[in-house]
Structures are given as C-alpha cells and as structure tokens.
Write a protein that binds this DNA or RNA. Structure first.
Lengths: 234, 234
DNA sequence: GCTGCCATGGCATCGAGTACCCTCAATTAT
DNA sequence: ATAATTGAGGGTACTCGATGCCATGGCAGC
C-alpha cells in the first residue's frame, strides 16, 4: 500500500496520452493497456473503472482529509478547520499543475467525467458536513448548518481552484482559494470567531409585528429589511 | 412534446416495479421492456440511459426552473428569487410523495443512481448560479458570490427535502424546506430586500422584541415558540 | 391507388466491467 | 534440492448497457 507500483503510473501515463490526443471516449481500455504494454485484466486491478484513471490520487486525498478532520481539537473554530481541510485538497492539485490543468480541460468537456468528478467532490463535502455535524451537535439546526456550510466551503474552494486552473495554473493557487474561502468565513463569522463589525449599543432593539400565519421565511425577510434600513448589511 | 405518450409511463411503472422487488442492478433492460410489453429499442427512445427512468421528470423541472428565473424582474431580491426557484423543484417532489419516497430509498442505496442524482442536482445548481451571476455582474466578486449562494441554497433545499423524504413524506414538505432556506437567507441578508404590504392590517399578530445583533436562528426559534404558545404551529 | 412520414421492433455491434482459470516467479517447508 | 504455497499478472468468455442500421406497419395528404 505504501509502495508505488510502476504499473499504475504507466497506466495513468498511457491513458492520459491517448485521452489528450484522441479524446476520452475514443480511447478504449484495450488501447490503453496495449500502449502500456500490460494485459487488459491488469487495468481493472488498479482502477475499478475507466473514470478512476483520471483521478488517480483522490482516494488518498480523501483519506488525508478525513484524518485531518479527526485530528481536530475541540478548541478551534469548526469553520476555520473545514477551510483548512479544503486547502489540503488544493495542495494535491498544486503538486502537479500541468496534470491538474490537463485533467480540468478533459473533465470540462466529457460529461461522463464531469459526473464522476461530482461524485468525488460529494465525498469530500460529506466528510466536511459530517465533521461539522458533530461539532454542531448541540445546536438547534446543527445538521442543516453543517450541510450548508460544507456546501458553501466546497463551492468557494472549487471557484478559486477553477479560476486558477482556467488561467493555466499561473500565479498562486493558494491566494485564489484563500480569497474565496474568506468570503464564506465572512458570512458565518457569528459564533466565537473574530467579530470585526462595528460595536453597536446593547439596547438597540428591533420590534417585529407580523401575522400569525405568515411563513417564517417571509417574516425574516422583513426583519432583515428593517435591519438594513440603517445598520451595516455586511 | 406536450402530449404524454403512454409508453413512457408504462416503462417507468415497469421499471420501478422490478427495481423495488428485485433491486436496480438485478433488473435488466430486457426485463423491463418484457414486462412493459415493448421492444428493447423503444426504451432508449424515451430514456437515454437506464438511470434516466428513475428521474423521469427532472428534465421538465429544470426547464421550468430556467423559465422561472428568466422571468425574474430586476426589482426583486435575487436570493429570494433563487429560493423560490428551489421551492419550485420541491413542488415536483411533493406532487407524487410515494413515488418520491420510493426513489429516495432506491437512490440512497445504489451508488450509480446517487452519482446520477448528483449530476442532476448539479444542473439545477448551475442554473441558479448563472442567474445569480448575471444579477451580481456588477459586484466585485459576483461569480464567487453566485456560486456560493447557489450551493448553499441547494444544500438547504436538499436538507429539508431529505428530512421530509426520510419521514416517509409525512407532514408538510414546504415547511421543512422553508425553514432550511430561511437559514441561508439569514446568512446573506441585506441587499435590496423588497418590502411588501405592511402586516399590521390583520388582527391576529405576533410581536417579537429582540436585540439587533441576535443570531437569526434564535429569533426564529422565539417566534416559533410564540406561535406554538396557543395557536397552530406551522 | 401511391407516397412520404413517423413510431416501433429486430437484429448486429461495440465497449465497459466481471468471473473464472491459467502461467510464472518468489518464497517457504520438508 | 524439491515440492508446495502464495500472489501478481495475463487470457478468455460472458453479461449488459448503449448505439446504429434497417425492416415493418399504421396514417396522413393528394
């Protein structure tokens, strides 16, 4: 498990060579194994499906992320921890910039690969949401909060990552993702984190009068409208 | 396109019957078409893949959502509009509760279907993000904001939807999703909220007094507590 | 009549994925 | 040293989803 079999790398190299010069669907498994000089059966020993050869290291990255989240202390901010976990995944992309860009262009134009990437990203998101769900276990809407924040963090990460990939992996990937993640942190900075807003008077109150049967989302919308009237809308 | 071919419905019914009594993978296309009494080739005329028969109406729902977003006026709040678009999708699930629950249980335990559902949800999310991206075109981080909010709305919608589905489609689906979406709205408040008619015209009212910086979830909980005090919760 | 048109059905084929069995080398036991 | 075991790699046949091509059959319109 710790040793790196050369056959696996040979299969990835052969596969990407054919995918790039001939397209993903046009390159068959037989073509790949013929180019790599191995038997057809051996391909499926190393990759459970044809799509897996395009994401050869996500299994390891997912394990790394899970371990990182499990090593979290109870003292640190959950949102910050999750953002750091996302940065961990970014590191894997940044290790091989050219490979990441090739895969990005491939994934963008092959629907099957895009669908597979979604299932990969979904597992990352579930890892984040499960961690947050445990940290927010005592909150009223802990699971909901966990799901939404995890989705937001993943979306921000992907936004920064894709911006970097679209540019051909020039510039600093970490900067783009840090900027995107900061956007999420700013939206949910409420709890024990750094509260940088201007100090307001404690006796500043809001009075809400509403019908009993009004949907809750409409009530809150009105509250926000009242807040935005003279306050600081972030 | 407007006419409903009975053969399509027959295929869906036959497919679900076999999926439920035998499992998804164990039921082959030949079994389905044999049960439906049609030719094998006809299946792929109505459904491009085996997975599509499990989500027979998402194509229409996606078109409905796109149309709904295109019909948006420049005056209304983008986030509210996107939340309403999500509620539109919920309506499709609520139309056939038993069917939705069956599909939910099927999708939960078949990895292939879960992956396919992700690609479906991804298209919804892209529609929302594209709409928000256009509305936030003049903002500094418009695309980023659009991606993050779209992901949060979808995550909240799915959280509420799955809560409802897990309960066997008992109770009000709209209430669960409204509550979840309100959570997202609370995070990204501000910007041009439309205030409609003043609510003090009705006699049955609820009055809430709270401090300005109180977290929104706490306010909502107080309101709901006040509602449950003597009236009908929800 | 005849002529397109369209929905359907019937093969034939391709390619991904799997099950089963074979070979060969290295190791270990006797 | 020889036999037995183990494990990586290879080969073959099969299943099944998916596509392409063509035949059939009803149903306009003139």
């Amino acid at each position: 498990m710790t040793t790196k079999p050369p056959m696996r790398d040979a299969l990835v190299a052969a596969a990407f060579q054919l995918f790039l010069e001939r397209g993903y669907e046009a390159a068959t498994i037989d073509d790949i194994v013929a180019l790599a000089g191995v038997g057809r059966r051996s391909f499926f020993r190393y990759f459970p499906s044809k799509e897996d050869v395009v994401f050869p290291d996500h299994e390891r990255a997912l394990a790394d992320m899970t371990r990182f989240l499990e090593a979290s202390a109870d003292g640190d901010d959950p949102v910050a921890r999750v953002c750091d976990a996302a940065r961990l995944v970014l590191g894997m992309y940044a290790e091989n910039p050219t490979f990441s860009v090739q895969r990005y262009r491939l994934t963008k134009q092959v629907p099957g690969l895009r669908a597979y990437e979604l299932s990969v990203v979904w597992r990352y998101e579930r890892a984040l949401a499960d961690y947050l769900g445990a940290r927010y276990a005592d909150r009223p809407d802990g699971k909901l909060r966990a799901d939404v924040i995890a989705a937001a963090v993943v979306a921000a990460h992907n936004n920064g990552l894709r911006t970097w990939l679209r540019s051909g992996a020039e510039g600093d990937a970490g900067a783009a993702v840090d900027h995107a993640l900061e956007f999420v942190r700013a939206a949910w900075n409420g709890e024990g984190a750094t509260r940088q807003g201007p100090p307001e008077a404690e006796d500043d109150v809001v009075i809400v009068i509403t019908k009993r049967r009004t949907p809750m989302w409409r009530v809150v919308r009105e509250i926000e409208a009242g807040l935005a009237e003279e306050g600081s809308p972030t």
